[in-house]
Every structure is written in C-alpha cells, then in structure tokens.
C-alpha cells in the first residue's frame, strides 16, 4: 500500500487522561480513510494528534515517510495537511473573504485556481463573500471550513464530523462536495453518520477506547451487519 500518512502505536494524553492508548493505521494516497467508533472513542483526538494540537507522548506519526512527532501545528499544516475541526473553527467576526485570506499562504495562480474551484463547489460562499462568518448557517460554516483547509496545496485533508448538527439536505450537499474533493486529495474522515461514511469511504479503521481494533475496506463493513453491530452498535 502506498501510504501517505502512518500512525504507529500512538499514545496521547490530554492533561492526566490517557486518551489514545494504541492507535495505528495507514492512510493510502488518493483514497478516503474513515475513522469510525463510538462517542469518546478517541477519533477527534487522533486528528488533533496528527495536527500536533495534542502531540503524541509515545509512538510515531509519519507523513510521506518523515516523522512529525514534536513539530508545531503550523509546521505540520505547511507540509500539506489541511484540518477541518469538529466545531469548524470559523473566525466569526471576519467575513467569508477574510476567513479565506487568513488561510491563503500566497496569492499565486495555483492558489487562485484552487480558490476558484472550491468556490464553484460551494457557490453559497460566493454569495455571502462579504458577510461575517459568524452569521452563516451551520452548513455554510462547514463549507467555509472545508474550503479554507483546501485552498493551499493540500495533500491530506482531515475532516472531523462534517455532518454533525446539519439538516439531512445539507448533509447531502456536504457529502457531494467531499466526494468531489476525493478526486483531488487524500482524506481522513471522522464520521458518526455511517450512511455518509460508507458512501464516501474507501477504507475504515474502528477506534474503541483509544485503540484501533479493526480495519478493512469499506465494502466489508457495508456488507457485514454483525461487524457493524459488534463495533459500532448499529444494524
């Protein structure tokens, strides 16, 4: 497997709490890897660990073969990793345009091209270009957060619970956009909504109590109800 990112026996603490106890997985380039698991299993912490926001205490996080342990978040982002946090991280007092400009490292032709592509994917952002980010709807905030993470040269996109709190029709839209982005970049998706995850994902890893306990191609999980019951508690 041509892996873009790998985690080996990663352990992460938040204050005194041992959240990730043994997380290992590989993310193949050009595919969507979905992290599944119950609430509080450690999926969000896994993404935060990759970003360096909750650095690992043990184990190894490697991107394109280079170990990233100990790097500050901005260095990790500058290696080509975009992050869409669970709360979307929108700068509410800044306009949509300003939110995008904070993210843009330079205004090169390449970046402007990516901007154009992403704005065509999310036309709502164009409509509300001069509106403060805090006044957008939940779905529009999610779109802005994804657009912002993608606008630079992003080889890997970490997206945390994009469907959370959104109306079903908006979830459809977000799902469609992630499917479009899948053609352009590698994605790690944390998602509770199994229907969405199973339609977008190529691979899955199940995290339980801070450990990766099972993995495989998404088709396996789609077809095996007993596995879904056992690890996710759903039929």
């Amino acid at each position: 497997m041509n892996s873009l990112l790998s985690l080996k026996n990663v352990e992460t603490y938040i204050d005194q709490y041992h959240i990730l106890q043994d997380v290992s997985f590989e993310v193949p380039a050009g595919e969507v890897t979905v992290l599944l698991g119950r609430n509080g299993a450690g999926k969000t912490t896994t993404l935060r660990t990759i970003m360096g926001l909750n650095p690992p205490k043990k184990g190894e996080v490697a991107f394109k073969g280079a170990i990233m342990n100990g790097l500050p978040p901005h260095d990790i982002a500058n290696r080509g990793i975009g992050y869409v946090p669970e709360d979307q991280g929108i700068f509410g007092a800044l306009t949509v345009e300003e939110n995008m400009k904070v993210a843009m490292k330079k205004e090169s032709d390449d970046v402007m091209e990516r901007m154009e592509w992403i704005l065509n994917l999310f036309p709502d952002l164009k409509t509300f270009w001069k509106k403060p980010g805090g006044l957008l709807s939940g779905g529009q905030k999610q779109m802005l957060s994804i657009a912002r993470a993608y606008v630079n040269e992003t080889e890997l996109l970490l997206i945390d619970e994009p469907s959370k709190g959104l109306a079903p029709i908006v979830v459809e839209k977000v799902m469609h956009s992630i499917q479009e982005m899948k053609q352009k970049t590698t994605i790690i998706l944390v998602e509770q909504n199994f229907l969405m995850a199973s339609q977008i994902g190529d691979y899955f890893y199940i995290i339980d109590d801070g450990r990766t306990v099972f993995n495989g191609r998404m088709q396996l999980l789609r077809e095996d109800e007993s596995l879904r019951r056992k690890y996710l508690g759903i039929a």
Partner: peptide, 22 residues
C-alpha cells in the same frame, strides 16, 4: 492585521492554517 484579528478569536485554528502564532 488579519491574522491578529483571527488569532484573537481562535489561536488554535490560526496555527492549523499554517501560521506561526508564536
């Protein structure tokens, strides 16, 4: 200035966008 205004709102997100907040 834009980065400073963004940083006042959410420092962590600014870092995650590749900006050396320190």
């Amino acid at each position: 200035g834009l980065i400073v205004r963004a940083g006042v709102i959410n420092k962590e997100m600014v870092q995650s966008l590749g900006i050396n907040i320190k």
